[in-house]
């Protein structure tokens, strides 16, 4: 049963609320997942600690080539942010595809990550961007890559009754870099992805310096297509090569059969199409930036 709803003004206050309540208090930001989980009894909380009024946590900044997104920033804030659109388009696209307008106005990108669903759109994009999360515990501050925030299906390594994720950060994409998000969905809003793919590429002239390819839901968390990445690394960015790399992605994908969102077979067959399209867009962007 919910007994109290606290609205701290500082990060320290938020942490001390957690500490003082010994596991009974839990962080809430947008609440779009948490409130449903509480109602359905999947999670428990006697006290909710609302972090959305803490100055700084709603902010998106870029400093010295590093983009930072506060943990109270909503999907729509991220999707519409000039910084994100210019320096990490893949994330703007991913944030735009979550839920519906109302959900995007309330739900936060960090909340999307911490809900730990395998195909959380922004987690897929942040993984491709190599994002790192700043996590505060009463005694320490630590940095963890976004993909390490997944402890299992629907489970986060972060304990929201004692820890606070304050922001995620990643390097802003450079002029020779590009990114793209592709999503196979049954409708344009309020639909979980049948597949989603996020790609970040770095070019040197006509060659790939490197590429990061992340795909979901093909495992318990966003999955890196490292074999595809290896094919691309250092090679000339031709459509044949992209096709080959895209095809290789299925080796690391293990999608499930879903009566609602497509068979395993179908998803495996269509996955390379999404990877190919994302790579093509990202490459075009990287080239266009020159």
């Amino acid at each position: 049963m919910l007994q109290d709803y606290l609205v701290p003004k500082t990060i320290d206050q938020a942490l001390s609320h957690l500490q003082n309540n010994n596991g009974k208090a839990r962080i809430i930001a947008g609440g779009t997942d948490l409130l449903l989980d509480l109602k359905e009894g999947k999670k428990e909380a006697g006290i909710l600690v609302d972090i959305t009024r803490i100055p700084g946590l709603k902010v998106i900044t870029m400093e010295n080539g590093v983009v930072r997104i506060g943990s109270a920033a909503t999907h729509n804030q991220v999707a519409k942010s000039d910084i994100i659109r210019e320096k990490a388009l893949v994330l703007a696209q991913a944030a735009r595809s979550v839920g519906s307008l109302q959900i995007r106005n309330s739900g936060t990108v960090v909340g999307n990550v911490l809900n730990a669903q395998p195909a959380a759109d922004t987690a897929v994009a942040l993984t491709a961007l190599g994002a790192v999360a700043e996590i505060l515990s009463p005694a320490k501050k630590e940095y963890l890559p976004v993909e390490e925030l997944y402890a299992g299906l629907g489970k986060s390594t972060l304990d929201s009754t004692s820890q606070l994720l304050t922001m995620v950060q990643f390097p802003a994409l450079l002029k020779n870099q590009g990114s793209a998000f592709e999503r196979l969905e049954q409708r344009k809003a309020l639909a979980l992805p049948m597949l989603n793919v996020a790609v970040v590429v770095s070019l040197s002239g006509e060659q790939f310096e490197w590429a990061r390819i992340v795909m979901a839901p093909v495992g318990t968390k966003p999955v890196r297509a490292t074999e595809s990445e290896a094919i691309l690394k250092g090679a000339r960015a031709t459509s044949e090569l992209i096709e080959k790399a895209a095809g290789a992605a299925i080796a690391q994908a293990n999608p499930r059969d879903s009566a609602l969102r497509g068979s395993r077979e179908y998803r495996l067959e269509v996955l390379p199409v999404l990877v190919k399209r994302a790579l093509e867009s990202a490459v075009a962007q990287a080239k266009g930036n020159f």
């Binding site: 409708r187 344009k188 309020l190 609602l260």
Partner: peptide
């Protein structure tokens, strides 16, 4: 193009909510 209620082998409706049932949205 998208709407249907199907059943599993035990006769349970698989599409039993607005989330699962693919009604076109305004964006569609």
């Amino acid at each position: 193009t998208s709407e249907e209620i199907t059943y599993d082998a035990k006769g349970r409706q698989l599409h039993n909510s607005l989330h699962k049932y693919m009604l076109p949205t305004a964006e569609d």
